[in-house]
Design a protein around this nucleic acid. Structure first.
Lengths: 211, 211
DNA sequence: AATAACAGACCAACTAGTCGGTCTGTTGTC
DNA sequence: GACAACAGACCGACTAGTTGGTCTGTTATT
């Protein structure tokens, strides 16, 4: 087993600190001390503190966007697609909780060029969600009276907000939380007739057979 | 008509700037220049930049907590109470959008003493929500399989997230958005039998009679 | 030997906060 | 009514400390 590379160590330390104290609450000096390196080590690996922040954003959004597109491709019906996307996204909280926190708290501090790049992917992710909702309405699985954007943002809000309260190693696993989210969302989106449809009912029961 | 007091002007300017650039993206110098005052004027009215940040938090959370308790007191049934609380909270976005943004983005930068005070009220607010959900389940209006905390945090996430995308003067009024939130939430919380109950059905129709 | 990886002293810029001073309006005194 | 005495609001040059970033030198690696 090779020693963990310095660059990785810097990122991990920075994430831990940024999550707790915020980007501006952490100095480069603090980062380098806490992971036993030096200014030289830091600036050898990153052009600037900004670039480190960008890197964190980039890693996270790229991963999440890929996962969403993957989940979309894996299923055919809107209901299944939506559930798969949510599930894959929520699972990310166990892997990338600090990334997510930084992503939602500190992105205003990204330099314009960096911000643009990140925002593009962020926008793509949103469009995947909107697309699924649109298809769900067209397929008469989701209620047609729902406005796509607001509904999409509601779902994203519900899920994203998790970063404010989720504690890994808490009393509930992230999978259990994901199930509850999906339960809530399906109850609010599905039409009465979709709830009756055999394949959707089966899919539903397979995932949430409470009692 | 008296001139607007300096303190008010400072707060307004700071809010506008904090919302856009973040607490650390705005210097005291910038605040005082943009509202045509001076360092002296600023520090005459505030002990520190931190105190200004605290003040913004305090005004907002106090208002919101009062509104929630008021809404709770005004109604008797859990469903009505929940809707009233959500409605009153969402309406705040037209009044206090910058406050809310600062509240959710910058509270980590509050000095410990300040943070404690704010957090206490924040906690109280959460408890009101949890309480209503608990009562709703006990009254068999809300589905008993829902865990109170997660459901509560889901609702708060959905609603709070609004600060990330809501544009006053957008194509939808805040009241319309509130209705959609409530529609989604009721669909996911209400039991089948509650949906049938005459008074709840009436209440429902009164608020969302889409076609 | 040449190059990449890292160390750490140092620098220049910036920023929150201070402090002596001014200006305006109010109160008390004759 | 005039004037002294005073208070509070506000000004802005200045400071002390902090922070991101640089630069020269040292160590490891191939």
């Amino acid at each position: 087993m090779v020693e963990k590379q310095l660059k990785e160590r810097i990122i991990e330390t920075a994430l831990k600190l940024f999550e707790k104290y915020g980007y501006h609450g952490v100095t480069v000096d603090r980062i380098v001390t806490e992971c036993n390196t030096s200014k030289g080590g830091f600036y050898h690996n990153f052009k600037s503190k900004d670039e480190l922040l960008y890197h964190i954003h980039e890693v996270f959004i790229t991963y999440v966007l890929n996962k969403a597109q993957e989940a979309y491709g894996k299923y055919q019906t809107p209901t299944e697609r939506l559930c798969a996307i949510i599930q894959s996204f929520v699972k990310v909280f166990d892997l990338y909780k600090p990334h997510i926190t930084v992503f939602y708290q500190e992105s205003i501090y990204l330099k314009p060029e960096y911000f643009e790049k990140i925002n593009e992917k962020r926008e793509q992710f949103k469009q995947v969600i909107f697309q699924v909702i649109r298809e769900g309405i067209e397929a008469r699985e989701f209620r047609s009276e729902l406005p796509i954007e607001i509904t999409g943002m509601s779902i994203m809000g519900m899920v994203n907000w998790t970063y404010k309260w989720y504690k890994p190693n808490g009393s509930m696993t992230i999978e259990e939380i994901a199930k509850i989210f999906i339960d809530l969302i399906l109850h609010s989106l599905l039409t009465e007739s979709a709830k009756q449809k055999e394949e959707i009912k089966a899919f539903f029961l397979r995932n949430f057979s409470h009692s």
